[in-house]
Amino acid sequence: MRDSVKLSRFFGAGQGGCGLFDEIYRNIIYQDRWLYLLKGLWVTVEVTFFAILLGTILGMVLALMRISNFKLFRIRILEKISSFYITIIRGTPLMVQLLIIYFVVFASVDIDKVIVAVIAFGLNSAAYVAEIIRGGILSVDKGQAEAGRSLGLSYTQTMRHIVMPQAIKNALPAYTSEFIVLIKETAIVGYIALEDLTKVGDTIRSRTFSALVPLLTVALIYLLLTGVLAKLFMRLERRLRRSDNR
């Protein structure tokens, strides 16, 4: 504590150590709390990254199932399964899904909580990504697929080389939003006692009894993270739109 007083004097903060710089010192620098924050940030990034990866792959599969005409006993079985999955995921709170996966599905399994979080957020994100991609596919003119098929390309080849590249380009803005939403939504992993950025910020708050600096710092880090991501995707979007230029 003596150190903090010294430092606050140095910065010209008032007596008793209640100036802003003293606050910053106590909440971020003292006891290497910045390292603790960094660890939390790493968990957030880790969970988000693998969850969006899982969500994108599974979402792509769900989207293709949703538009497939494959029939078993005259029922569009793949479409039905996909629709059912999306209805369940979209119709229940993410938090409840996370708790079910942790306390019910993996109740008796000793498993890294990060993996539990990745599975929960990935499964959730897949439903939204599926709808985003389906929207992208529907936005591609029907004539594109017809032109592909008329050349003798198979359904799969037409999807892969003609429809999907255009669908993904059209879906990118909505996909970026989903990515950003996912980053922020991982803030609830504290409920399964995983120490992500938010949880760490809150823990610091409860130790130092000051809320402003730790919570504002956490907010700022999220803002930075989502801001950089939005920029990156904007750049990608511009690159994909090159062929639209006259």
Partner: peptide
């Protein structure tokens, strides 16, 4: 697919692939 590859088709709306 084999049959279609021997039948060329030209559309009213061209249907060129805009990304290529």
């Amino acid at each position: 697919n084999e049959v279609r590859s021997k039948m060329g088709m030209v559309f009213q709306q061209f249907n060129l692939f805009p990304h290529l």
